[in-house]
Nucleic acid binder design. Structure first.
Lengths: 222, 222
DNA sequence: ACCTGAACACCGTTCAAGT
DNA sequence: ACCTGAACACCGTTCAAGT
């Protein structure tokens, strides 16, 4: 991807860089080498350019983080979900949200922390989520609480999916028998269902939340 | 906290540092100045010591992170919860878990990402959670999925609580009317209940998950 | 306007020297 | 064993010089 020919000093005849190019290169580096080992110098090298050149298109490293966050955020859409029943729409959105981050595991740790810019497309999705919950009978203030709770679960699950798979492994310990047995029984579940531990936990939690929401909607309908 | 007298070179007559002292100093700095502006040099200065001295007690900076994580993790206990009904015990543990992180907001971003050492006390809490869910009728493999889902929600909620309070603020936008209205209605909820938005969302989500769990337990009992 | 090249302040970490 | 002091490689960022 990097030009091997050395460029002369001075403005090049045709533009070499752009903000999107830099952000995409950064994301590719993170995917390849993880969150560490992704520095301004690395990004510059992968683009065949000197580090200082990046600053013509990007404010600083944080700005690149913001760009990546927007890039991933744009992939979380609400397309067509307005026609589905509210609980189905909510589930589909939650799965898409988590999948967008899970596609780039090392980014989760970086981005889950970052404030989302209100100008981005996520606000539009928020708008539709509130609308969907309205169809289920929720007042808007309460709907926002449900939305934030759901989003917390989604981001937490994305973090879990990005973590080392054997992070919880109790190993040879014998002072936590219930937990050790549970860990081994889950391995059996993984084998029989083919779903990863993180996927299983996410689906379990998502169903619990949806069950809770449906029960509340049903109670309200009575 | 720092000695103003300059120390001579060579081994001091009495030990100045220790691992716990370093970890506690680091946590205090994070609480005061946030996650940035907390470097080895800062920790050393607050202890009245040179940066290189830290490496006699600590492997590296990551090791300090691990120490902080353990420090906070130890505060999440399961004391006495074995006697309570399983759903009450679970709720109490979840609140305590989140509160332990919420007490040090800037650490959440750092630690949520980190693998937890299996030797730590969290495994013991896991053991009791699996046990409590067993009392509710869950098989151990499924109980582990519930546990991970709950933990994802807790950590996601801790991240949310640590985020800037106006992170979602739609401001003057008029293309997301449902969301804007929800944001303003929630402000009303905050005023009337006195609970912060993050607290409200956490309680909402926790109740939804518990409702889902109770419904499953009830269905099983039939 | 947009690149290179050189520099800046700062970072985590290593290690010899000293007691 | 455990501190200081000096050094190392590396980092994000700035800026003059060049086209």
């Amino acid at each position: 991807m990097a030009e091997t020919k050395r460029r002369r000093v001075g403005r090049p005849s045709e533009q070499v860089l752009s903000r999107v190019l830099i952000v995409e290169a950064a994301l590719a580096l993170i995917d390849e080498h993880g969150a560490q080992g992704f520095g301004m110098r690395d990004i510059a090298r992968s683009l065949g350019v000197r580090p200082s050149a990046l600053y013509n298109h990007v404010e600083n490293k944080d700005d690149i983080y913001r760009g990546i966050r927007e890039l991933i955020g744009e992939r979380i859409t609400w397309d067509g979900l307005d026609d589905a029943p509210w609980d189905v729409a909510l589930a589909a959105w939650a799965r898409e949200y988590r999948a967008a981050f899970a596609a780039h595991p090392p980014t989760v740790a970086l981005l889950a922390v970052m404030p989302i810019s209100p100008t981005s497309s996520v606000s539009v999705a928020y708008d539709r989520v509130v609308h969907a919950l309205g169809r289920g009978g929720w007042g808007r203030g309460e709907a926002l609480n449900v939305l934030v709770a759901l989003e917390s679960f989604i981001l937490g699950s994305a973090l879990d999916a990005a973590a080392a798979p054997d992070m919880m492994d109790p190993g040879e310990r014998d002072d936590v028998p219930e937990f050790s047995a549970a860990y081994r029984e889950r391995e059996e579940l993984v084998r029989s269902t083919g779903a990863s531990p993180a996927d299983q936990a996410f689906e379990t939690g998502l169903q619990l939340i949806l069950d809770g929401l449906r029960a509340a909607a049903a109670a309200r309908a009575r």
